[in-house]
Amino acid sequence: MKIEVMKALMEDNINKAQSLRDLFYKKKVLVLNLISSPGSGKTTLLEKTILKFKDSFNIAVIEGDITTARDAERLKQFNIPQVVINTDGACHLNSTSIEKAIQNFDLEMLDLIFIENVGNLVCPSEFDIGESAKIALVSTAEGDDKPGKYPLLFQEAKLVILNKTDLIPYTNFKKDFFYKDLNNINSTVQVFEMSCITEEGLSSWFEWIEIKISEMEELC
């Protein structure tokens, strides 16, 4: 006999993510979910960003790391609240892990939470974790073909960061190829080109964060 089920498979995760999003909204906390490959520069970008804003905003970080706490160690110098989620091999964070992690924070005191997702372009794109925005971070050294190969991430992203632009002369990265691919998938997404080493382009990213935080304040 056949039994109709018609149930959404990730319903639990989606519902929990939505209640987290409502909570962040109520507490006026901007939550940015950074998704990238390993080695694209997430932690360096966070170092630069926290250094810039640590006196103007209250920032916390959630580090998703498969086994180590190395990224968290690098951010310790800033003396901000941070939680490491060791996924023990799992390739993504989900809303249950975020719900647990934020128990360690006083949301009333925070303006901004960065979530450094597990380095992976596939799985983290599939999971809503209640973030205000998913940010796709790609570096030029990875190649110019990433949007076409990982379309879901670039569809989901509210912002794309193209990092390590200072390395372009040493790679075969073709900007027009990258943008053609990206435009096919998500032609309206905002893109910031930057280099965390030369600090070129960082100011647009800083401005974007300031605008998003003030929008959050006004909306609530």
Binding site: K2, I3, V5, M6, K7, A8, L9
Partner: peptide, 11 residues
């Protein structure tokens, strides 16, 4: 979509 539509089995 990511849906479980139906199952078939015996009683």
């Amino acid at each position: 979509e990511l849906i479980i539509e139906n199952i078939e089995g015996e009683r």
